[in-house]
Design a protein around this nucleic acid. Sequence first.
RNA 1: CGGGGCGUAGCGCAGCCUGGUAGCGCACCUGCCUUGGGCGCAGGGGGUCGUAGGUUCAAAUCCUAUCGCCCCGACCA
Length: 599
Amino acid sequence: MHRWSELFIPTLREAPADAEVASHKLLVRSGYIRQLGAGIYSFLFLGNRATQKIMGIVRQEMDKIGQEFHLPTLHPRELWEESGRWSVMGDNMFRLKDRKGADLCLGMTHEEVMTSIARKELRSYKQLPQIWYQIQTKFRDEPRPKSGLLRVRQFIMKDSYSFDMDAAGLDVSYLKHYDAYCRIFDRCGLKYMVVEAHSGAMGGSQSHEFVVRTPAGEDLIVSCEKCNYAANMEKATSKVDPVEDLKPEGDGKPLLIHTPGKGAIADVAEFLKVSPKQDIKAVAYMAQKPGADGKTQEQPVVAFLRGDHTVNEMKLLTLLKASDLRTMQAEELEKYFQGPGGYIGPVGLVVKPKESLVEWDPTKQDGDPRSMHVVLDEALAGRANMICGANKLDYHFKNVTPGRDFQYTVAADIRSVNAGEDCPNCGASLRIDTAVEIGHIFKLGYKYSESMGARVLDRNGKEVAPIMGSYGIGIERILTAAVEQSNDENGFWLPPSIAPFEVVVVATNTGDDKIRTTAEEITRSLETAGVEVLLDDRDERPGVKFKDADLVGIPFRINVGKKVTDDTVEVVQRSTRQSTDVKIPAIREYFQGLLPSAR
RNA sequence: CGGGGCGUAGCGCAGCCUGGUAGCGCACCUGCCUUGGGCGCAGGGGGUCGUAGGUUCAAAUCCUAUCGCCCCGACCA
């Protein structure tokens, strides 16, 4: 029997001053967690019970599709060099040396370890497919840990990896995960969304994020008000609203006009009495990518968008197969555009051919040192007679038509979606919300199997690399998201499936023998019926116990009080505050009817 | 890494500007009292004022350095 009087449940009347988001304040106040350092938390009794229950659900559902391993946290440098991520991960990876001076790191994720097992052991197509998973602590040296458990440097993650013979097999493994994740998050009682996600500059073809909407979240999610379209900001698109082009002036050729001091889109548009939608916005970058020698390679890129749109740098990175972007310095603008910032434009540039996007080799010069990638946002395709910078201080062009007056390397979707734009599927309005990412599934492709030399023989005796997927779930984030979605000023309530206890029995007056013994009997009776019960038998005033019961996330409370003389107790549902009188002999049956559906 | 803020008892804070006995609320301990929403009364314990150096007769307070934590931004396959 779990007696509150004998347990360590350090509840606080006030939240720590440095807690900002609801889940952080409440998890600390309720005695679930305590902070040890920036982004490092201890889980106390209640917190541990909740996370253990979450892991139990994850394990049950994952066991239906895969096999659980337990892999090392400590990884040798050589392993990560094989995949190239020893350098790619940069400062986000915790690194250390052993006594002999050998480099090690703490695992951020386990593609390398899993692949190293696969390459040693998997020999034949007959052994595939495989799905291997683990529930393990991961380490990431976040530049800025924040928001309690939402962004931390050490956290528990369920991560799994699939190995298949071909893309069709990967589809099956991917779908198995998709379904398992839905079951897991359903069972955890979360109101989640599945969104299309950016699949990364490192390759990979398809990806979904599982997210929970909350103001505390850091992900931006675009979703349709009407249909089921949903995607994260890095991936989302919208229908381009039609714009009526300006009429050509003069002979219709680009016309140089004096626009003194009007370097910003808004100023130019106002000066010329047109909408920013008639302007071409230019953003010039140096795209970066680590070279084979570990040094950063750079090449120039300019993006052209409609004046009222903004660049989605993640889309641009993906398009360019680059790892980083930085905006051009003044002298670089001068070099490539012969013009100052605010007045750069597409006319007269030296455009790299489309093939150069695939052959990412900035060291290879194609004659003209001014040549660069010119990326046109698709919203500009088909437009005519636009306004743009003339690559000359205080001058713009009118009458500029893409394709006629300037060429470009490629036209693609590189803009960010704005709230209220039209859904690409159904045309209804799009909304943007913040959300917490709780799970991510990802088609990896051949990146790791190829770079690390995993090979199996196919049916024809030919050696092929297995195709991989990787799939993650943040255990603590499930708890955090659950708290974020169900709390008030008095505390929070968890679904019974992940709450540390399903019921808290409050003996309102422990000085009263009848009340105390009845509370104990009810607790024992429910426990034998398989209900997880916490008995609050502390010698405290009722108010103290009610406040604590409201605080600590337990979904049901039984008040054992004066009504025992009537053979009656109150059952209070934390989420609604609804109280029901139940006869004591019927209490067990009452919860047996209530809980299974709520679990 | 850039900008801002904060380190004083377990938690929340005051004191610092203007140097001189370290304080308040909650929590904790003892006793009494009370028992349906953090009850009341009385008594009590607990702090090298983040750390190191400096200035001074004297430093929580002024100066310097350093460490830690929080927030905004950058960053976040």
